[in-house]
Design a protein around this nucleic acid. Structure first.
Length: 274
DNA sequence: CACGAGACCTGTTCGC
DNA sequence: TGCGAACAGGTCTCGT
């Protein structure tokens, strides 16, 4: 799941707190329990524990799909990949199935990293530049303009969908929001990026921002049992709607594979070019 | 550079 | 009912 809106939802929840989650800023790390070694990308488990204990959470940020806990002297960087989840719970709570890393905080709570498929990764970094430096623009930043987007699209010959999923091209888009943005624009997912007119690029720019903002407003999308609270799944136009009628024209939504990813689109509203 | 295959993992759903 | 195949929100590496 976790794409930009879901990560942003975590960030806001941990910053402000909500009904069952207290704000995390200001709390310090008092202990660590690494339950699945590969979850920790760097440094070594020994160094991780020695360095992180005693640091406090000063702020919480996000870059693309990376969640950034800015600590006293390091940045705890987390990528949830396919099945990662973050839960704030009592530090005496039983350790749930698929918990991979526990960070005990002061005040009797802990931040638990739960990840069924074990793809998620955690880094403790003094400098995030190496890890984050190759990411493309932030789609919701003011600096991301239609002109910038169009200019970046122009030299690329790739199919538009895999290009939008390429985090070096644009940071934060995943399979759901890409399918939704292309449908909103009326672009076939296999359209060549370089073939887009400025107007089409500007329309896609608008659609990308619209679906991401809508996703954030709905607290992300909850599929299956993960990510309580998200509502955006109730507003999907094409994602996981194979065979169901397009809300705009009534044509059956189709599912094809593009760049090895499941892709949903309306063949009427998003005609294949050429 | 663009693209596809395979890897990394576990769990659920689908088809026969 | 059972069992294997297909599929899942992501990204990396390798070969062509």
């Amino acid at each position: 799941m976790p794409e930009l809106p879901e990560i942003e939802t975590f960030r806001r929840r941990f910053l402000r707190g909500d009904d069952d989650t207290p704000p995390l800023v200001g709390r310090s790390v008092v202990g660590v329990d690494l339950l699945w070694e590969k979850t920790l990308a760097s440094p070594s488990p020994e160094e991780f524990e020695a360095r992180i204990v005693g640091q406090s959470i000063d702020d919480i940020g996000r870059r693309g799909k990376y969640l950034l806990f800015h600590l006293s002297s390091d940045t705890l960087t987390i990528h949830l990949r396919m099945s990662g989840d973050l839960r704030v719970e009592a530090d005496a709570a039983p350790v749930a199935t698929h918990h991979r890393l526990l960070l005990n905080l002061d005040g009797g709570i802990r931040l638990a990293f739960n990840d069924t498929r074990k793809f998620g990764r955690v880094w403790l970094l003094a400098d995030t530049a190496t890890l984050l430096g190759k990411l493309g623009p932030e789609p919701l930043d003011d600096s991301f303009t239609p002109d910038l987007f169009s200019t970046r699209l122009q030299p690329r010959r790739r199919q538009i969908k895999p290009l939008l999923l390429d985090q070096r091209f644009l940071a934060g888009m995943g399979n759901i929001y890409t399918d939704e943005a292309l449908h909103l624009t009326g672009l076939h997912p296999q359209t060549r990026a370089s073939s887009l007119t400025w107007e089409q690029a500007a329309c896609l720019w608008e659609s990308i921002r619209q679906v991401l903002q809508e996703g954030i407003r709905r607290n992300g999308a909850s599929i299956d049992w993960v990510y309580r609270g998200g509502e955006f799944q109730n507003y999907f136009q094409v994602y996981q709607r194979t065979g169901e009628p397009c809300y705009r024209c009534g044509t059956s939504i189709e599912r094809i594979i593009v760049g090895q990813r499941s892709t949903h689109f309306c063949p009427q509203c998003q005609p294949k070019p050429g």
